[in-house]
Design a protein around this nucleic acid. Structure first.
Length: 556
RNA sequence: GCCUCCGUAGCUCAGUGGAUAGAGCAACGGCCUUCUAAUCCGUCGGUCGCAGGUUCGAAUCCUGCCGGGGGCACCA
């Protein structure tokens, strides 16, 4: 008996009771969702359906609850149904029905927790998108972890997801980057507005090495030298970014170059930006004023209209954004998600306006998730302030697992601080170890069982009656709902928080219920059944950790 | 000024309109001759920023105020 099955059974019961009163009310599973009560005295699962419907039925919640409870007692697998408080229906499963979950988890393996609640959705998830003019730093790290985990959770719920990185490889920043690297390569003083940071020097050295005769070329044709140096430095830097991301266990399906939007089309076709502006003009959203070309984003809720083409004839950054959005649309994504830092929150209005201008439904086709920035030991990091801490440094210092777990366990809109001492500690200060330790323990039990000749030849779920077993089974049952909820809300931190609760339930069970026989005690079906439960617990820990990109070691 | 996020235990923070608001840390006290004590058990700890409102029911939704972060470009 799963919570989903329980909800369905309750929906049928309530439908019948409503029908018996001659009322025409539609009752769906979502009306009868059960929740895990905080208090164990309130049973295994509880429903508030009576309180929701009593008013519409013109009856007393407790009376209606009693009717539902009476019918619910005949559901197969339900041992007890009681009315409590203002009209809650508290359901208790019989031990065999609850215990059956362990076998189901083991049988479904890594598929346990996957669902199809988001089936049919084609989602484009854009995140990080850092300029390729320097290494990834801490400001990007949170979005990398959050974005990749979000994608994993969405996929687990059946969505088709493309992880996408937009490369700002056109425009003034790139030129500044090129000039900085060229000067470094030639041993010149840094230009006035040069990028700070030692990485420029090392890029300069590599550029000098890989472009023979650069100094001579610079002397005869400075622009040509700049172009070559800039291009090579860009490729080197982008490769390093990709490398860092892979080491952080973050995977992108598409690296989308802004240049492709600016480039002229084939056979004299206009660039994609020009084409995009034309398309929006045909929709009636583009106008000219003061020598500039504008888009009427205010028609879709933006505070002010935005410029596409400046008075000097140059496209704004936003024009490329618009063309990029249209490209995503043309690629058939049903939803475009942008994961941005709080410093970009002013972009929400204009981005959603472009979606509207392009003819998309702004309620469903675009989602802009804004996350708060990260602090490190109190000092917020910014590239401009010069105190850059690179992702690579953080990885070397803390490791992928600790860093990803910590960044994944807070809601995106919650301020977050990285505490190096905590992340390096091997204690309850550091929740990733707590969860990984639980997994390692399941593996230790498995090894010891094999050595002791304990096998899985029997499964007697009705024997799993210890209080801590009921708790652990309850957590196993909750897991699929947690994953589905995290996907629907785009909140992967729910997975991490659940894993911590799950690990706690496992540790308590481990402390109270031995899997292996003691000494020369004979092996019983209870031992064998508990081995199944141990397997199931390990499976859920693996599945959950995988959703946040963290490893599940077999030993610590 | 406008927009937006946040305000919950001493600290860091969870909490999808439900029952007595939770966890970790910190403090204090317990459990190892048996599967990993990186675990487990207990005690202490609250004006959910403030005030109204909606609701059978509000930390959660609405309004106003107070305090803090961020944002309000023909920059990228």
């Amino acid at each position: 008996m799963t919570p989903q099955e329980l909800s369905s059974a309750l929906a049928r019961i309530v439908t019948d009771l409503v029908g018996a009163r001659g009322l025409d009310l539609v009752v769906t599973d979502s009306d009868t969702q059960v929740e895990r009560p905080k208090n164990r005295d309130h049973g295994d699962w509880a429903s508030n359906v009576a309180m929701k419907f009593a008013k519409r039925l013109g009856t007393n919640p407790r009376e209606f609850a009693q009717e539902v409870a009476t019918a619910a007692e005949s559901i197969d697998g339900v041992a007890k149904a009681e009315v409590a408080g203002p009209g809650f229906i508290n359901l208790t499963l019989d031990a065999a029905s609850a215990g059956e979950t362990a076998r189901r988890v083991v049988e479904q393996g890594e598929n346990y927790g996957r669902s199809d609640v988001l089936a049919g959705q084609r989602i484009n998830l854009e995140f990080v998108s850092a300029n390729p003019t320097g290494p990834l730093h801490m400001g990007h790290t949170r979005w990398a972890a959050l974005g990749d985990s979000t994608a994993r959770v969405l996929r687990a719920a059946g969505a088709e997801v493309t992880n996408e990185y937009y490369i700002n490889d056109a425009g003034a920043q790139m030129n500044k980057f090129g000039r900085s690297v060229l000067a470094a390569a030639l041993g010149e003083d840094a230009p006035e507005d040069a990028y700070p940071g030692e990485y420029i020097q090392s890029l300069g050295a590599r550029v000098r090495e890989q472009i023979p005769g650069l100094a001579e070329l610079a002397a005869s044709d400075r622009d040509a030298a700049l172009e070559q140096a800039q291009e090579l430095a860009y490729q080197l830097q982008l490769a390093e970014i990709k490398d860092s991301l892979e080491r952080f266990n973050v995977h992108f399906d598409v690296f989308f170059s802004e240049r492709t939007l600016h480039a002229d089309g084939e056979d004299g076709e206009p660039s994609r930006i020009a084409a995009a502006i034309d398309r929006l003009r045909e929709q009636g959203h583009v106008y000219e004023e003061d020598d500039a070309i504008w888009v009427r984003t205010t028609a879709f809720g933006d505070d002010k209209d935005r410029v596409f083409t400046r008075g000097n004839g140059v496209y704004t950054y936003f024009a490329a954004d618009a063309a990029y959005y249209l490209d995503k649309m043309d690629r058939g994504f049903t939803e475009k998600i942008y994961l941005l830092g709080a410093d970009h929150h002013g972009y929400i209005g204009r981005l959603t306006a472009i979606a509207g201008a392009a003819g998309d439904d702004i309620e469903t086709s675009i989602t802009v998730l804004i996350g708060q920035l990260v602090n490190l030991n109190g000092a917020r990091l910014s590239k401009r302030a010069g105190n850059i801490i690179e992702l690579d440094d953080l990885l070397e210092w803390l490791g992928t697992d600790a860093l990803r777990y910590w960044l994944a366990r807070y809601p995106a809109d919650s301020p977050l601080a990285l505490d190096g001492e905590k992340l390096r500690s091997r204690s309850n200060d550091n929740p990733v170890f707590y969860v990984q330790y639980a997994h390692a323990r399941t593996c230790a039990v498995d090894r010891n069982a094999a050595a002791a000749g304990l096998d899985r030849s029997a499964f007697a779920p009705e024997l799993l009656t210890h209080e801590t077993e009921t708790e652990l089974l309850g957590k196993l049952q909750q897991y699929p709902g947690i994953v589905a909820g995290a996907a629907e809300l785009r909140e992967p931190h729910r997975i991490a928080r659940f894993l911590e609760e799950f690990a706690a339930a496992f540790h308590r069970w481990y402390d109270n219920c031995r899997v292996l026989p003691m000494g020369d005690e004979p092996i019983t079906d209870l031992h064998r059944t508990r081995l199944w439960l141990n397997d199931a617990a390990g499976q859920v820990l693996r599945n959950g950790l995988d959703l946040i990109g963290v490893s599940a070691p077999e030993r610590l």
